[in-house]
Write a protein that binds this DNA or RNA. Sequence first.
RNA 1: UGUCUUAUGGUGUAAUGGUAGCACUGCAGUUUCUGGAUCUGCCUGUCUAAGUUCGAAUCUUAGUAAGACAACCA
Length: 564
Amino acid sequence: METQNEESPKKILNFIEAFVEQDLREGKNGGRIQTRFPPEPNGYLHIGHAKAICLDFGVARDYEGVCNLRFDDTNPVKEDVEYVDSIKEDIQWLGYSWKNIYYASDYFQQLWDLAIELIKQGKAYVDEQSAEEIAKQKGTPTVPGTESPYRNRPIAENLAFFLKMNSGEVTEGSMVLRAKIDMASSNMHFRDPLMYRVITSHPHHRTGNTWKAYPMYDYAHGQSDYFEGVTHSLCTLEFEVHRPLYDWFIDQFKASAYRPRQIEFNRLNLTYTVMSKRKMLQLVQEGLVSGWDDPRMPTICGLRRRGYSPASIHSFIEKIGYTKFEAQNDIGLLEYAVREDLNKKATRVNAVLNPVKLIVTNYPKDKVEMMETVNNPEDETAGIREIPFARELYIEREDFMEDAPKKFFRMTPGQEVRLKSAYIVKCTGCKKNSEGNIEEIYCEYDALTKSGLPESSRKVKGTLHWVSAAHAVQAEVRLYDRLFSVENPSADPRDFRELLNPNSLTILTNCYVEPSLVEAKQLQQFQFQRIGYFNVDLNSNPDKLVFNRTVSLKDSWAKEQNKA
RNA sequence: UGUCUUAUGGUGUAAUGGUAGCACUGCAGUUUCUGGAUCUGCCUGUCUAAGUUCGAAUCUUAGUAAGACAACCA
């Protein structure tokens, strides 16, 4: 009775989950677990964000805690509601739901009040120097900074100026509020970090023109965590140096033993991809891709349009893990993950991308047979459907060779092949035009080898997919490949735009797909038999079918040929 | 000539002082009405050097290499 648990292997914890369990064992925060996903609404989410989302929401789920969505909207210059909606959509598509939605801007008043408190304690001051002067005084990582001439002005003066920073009397850039810490600290972030700056040029997307002084990240982020009761504040490695300051601010205000714990993990770097918001924006603005949801983009919406499933993204993220090592993740693993998922789920259909006519010369001219075919051999519950077979078919041009090498198992004169779910046929020849291009291929079928009949179990080396010429529907198929031609575009000295793969998109307009696909819905995923996984594009409609290649099938024949 | 962080097969990730394992890739084979999938096998690894210990991928020290930090961005 008690034996079940002994059988189940213990889940391998990553270092963050191990910390969380340790905190739980030690009884911290009364056993409460709370995380947050804190995007800035200034761009679209990409697969790197998905990694963070899976951790933030996953930890909350696994330890019966809560995860909130909080928009870190402290910089009205860059932010917009447009992004808020897409961020929500992408998180939900990944399968997560937040407990609450918060905005850092909800805390502007609280943050303001605490800043005043800090000024009163003599721990913050208004600096009237220019950005350049302040930067100069910061020193360098190896040279200590120097103190601002305004550092020791009277508290009353600081209070008065701070009020002016928010009243509209002060022009943008002329005053900032700084925490008074240590200009000689070996941690640059302790050299009197900026807490507030004045922004009058852009209204805030939620608070409008109410505020003129806006809090900076280091102050606002940590305090927001604290206000919300976050127990584990998970972020990427570049914030490691910020952690002492994160702790410092919270220590100035905390009222009990509770303090959120920041833990940093490694960012997701994908080979043959750029992940920086700036570079992605450039690709979009310069028309080098069709938009944020271009199927070649590593954005969540791009992956969705490309045909990636949420399950495949979860599986990929689980495989790469969370560590403190700055990894280069192989995009091949992402492709493996989507093949693995779609192999189990996608209906197999027939589509001929590069068609050539095949005529079954001994098949009656007007006859049409409906052939039964299984929807998915990996899933018995997927059922069967019927596809029309007739005398004139289309097959792939690459599936025929007039003079074939020994290992070529496809259509070649004198050789038998199986037409999937139909008959075994023997190639009898072909017709070429004056330029030597093949126009038609001929074969004869053996009526006894219809699929399901005893004679159909005859061994033939090759099986081809096909569509009936009279019944097939013309379609556009877009073949995608990796966006960049070098493994690590960010490490390359050349401009990243010079590194784009010129063959990342191939549009085929003369493809033929089986008639059942007219019914296909947008984003629906299929396996085009023997070719790859494809989905229905967002712009597809029954009058003009458009398919996107998610990923090709593994092709050991192509590999064999490349060896030669 | 600072502070912090990291280093395990080609790639990613386990092993928490006690047999270096898993996944992807690659290679070979099996099987197949998808040259897919499946199944099997194989190749390849603890950055270096000292130290502690019966025993070190793990702890210590020193080196080496890589990354983060000098935005009125987050």
